[in-house]
Simulated scan of single mutants.
Amino acid sequence: MKVLKKKKMIFLLVLILFIFINNTTLLTNSAKQPTLLAHRGMAQTFDMKGVTGESCTAEKIHNPEHEFLENTIPSIKAAFNAGAYIVELDVHPTSDGEFVVFHDWTLDCRTEGVGVTREHSLKELKALDVGYGYTADNGKTYPFRGKGVGMMPTLEEVLQEFGGKQLMIHIKSNDPDEGRLLAAYLNNYPKETVNHLTVYGGDEPIAVLKSRMPDTKVMSKETLKSCLLPYIAIGWTGYLPESCTNTHLQIPEKIGPWLWGWPEKFVDRMEQKGTSTVIVGGNGSGFSSGFDTEADLDRLPDDYQGIIWTNKIEKIAPLIKEFK
């Protein structure tokens, strides 16, 4: 019995040592720099306190420090020029078969229009002022009113302008038909353009889009769970589930430490399978925040080498050069 007990103890110690060596980042020393994801391009930011899905964030902006409006061609261009590796944008279908780049489900907050965005034609949406509703002083002044007329771009215009850049497209609904429509839309573009795209959104449209565009990187709650849950169970071995191949992961900063090999080995394992890793602020419940200040960057692990989600690309890009 003593011999058997001793063998079990040795086996347990060897197993613990294997798990430690196979997942520790203490023995690695990568010089690779992290990269940046610019949320909505270069955008006006707002106070996150009290924000819900029904909030009009254009009425809560901070005092403007630049002239750019989210989800516009100038905004996206400015974000790439500032140092973004990838730019996130939001899309809606129009009533006449186009896709426009715009964040809100309804028009009432940011524009002078009213009603559900997708219930309007492209001509109607192109006539709107996307800077109409922005105010930093409770409506005393509207610094961008009149400056955003005709600036709601189509997805086609964005892809023509930035076809060789990394773009992350956000489907704003959970309508499976929207996944079908977007897949049909994107399949008209060259493979080299589509290969630079990531699409995320509700489980149903993402599942439909992935079935029609199997080589496209996608993300939804379901794809996250299908990768991360089995990885948590067996990732200590270094094995990656097939569901972690060629996909996209957004990892809340408080969840990351629970993942085997976090951060350096985890990011490297995913990259070897064609999967990108983005770290976002918070714990994954409610609205996740970006890394928007120097103090935010201080919370990152020193060896993080994946993609960082930011709402302040113009502030964070200069700092990231000194991150390592």
Results as ranks from 00 to 15, higher is better:
71 N>D: 07
200 Y>C: 08
165 K>L: 06
42 M>K: 12
253 E>T: 02
105 W>S: 12
159 L>S: 09
202 G>R: 11
272 Q>I: 07
185 Y>S: 03
197 L>C: 12
59 E>S: 09
191 K>E: 14
76 I>H: 11
105 W>K: 13
308 I>F: 01
177 D>H: 15
37 L>S: 15
219 M>H: 13
288 S>H: 04
141 T>L: 11
239 Y>C: 00
134 Y>V: 01
223 T>F: 02
324 K>I: 12
157 E>H: 06
231 Y>N: 00
3 V>T: 14
56 C>I: 00
97 G>T: 01
191 K>H: 10
98 E>M: 06
237 T>I: 08
293 T>Q: 08
118 R>N: 07
75 S>G: 10
281 G>D: 00
128 L>K: 10
278 V>D: 04
263 P>Q: 08
286 G>C: 08
172 K>S: 09
192 E>Q: 11
137 D>P: 07
111 T>Y: 11
24 T>Q: 12
209 L>W: 03
167 L>V: 12
262 W>K: 00
68 F>L: 11
66 H>Y: 02
114 V>H: 15
273 K>Q: 11
105 W>Q: 14
8 K>D: 06
88 E>N: 03
134 Y>Q: 00
292 D>V: 03
137 D>S: 05
20 F>W: 14
199 V>D: 05
61 I>L: 04
172 K>Y: 09
143 P>A: 03
318 P>L: 13
80 F>V: 02
204 E>S: 14
44 Q>G: 05
90 D>M: 10
154 T>F: 11
224 L>Y: 11
47 D>L: 00
16 I>Q: 06
33 Q>H: 13
19 I>L: 15
87 V>F: 10
270 M>P: 05
258 W>L: 12
73 I>W: 03
131 G>Y: 06
302 D>I: 04
194 V>E: 05
29 N>V: 06
316 I>M: 06
204 E>I: 04
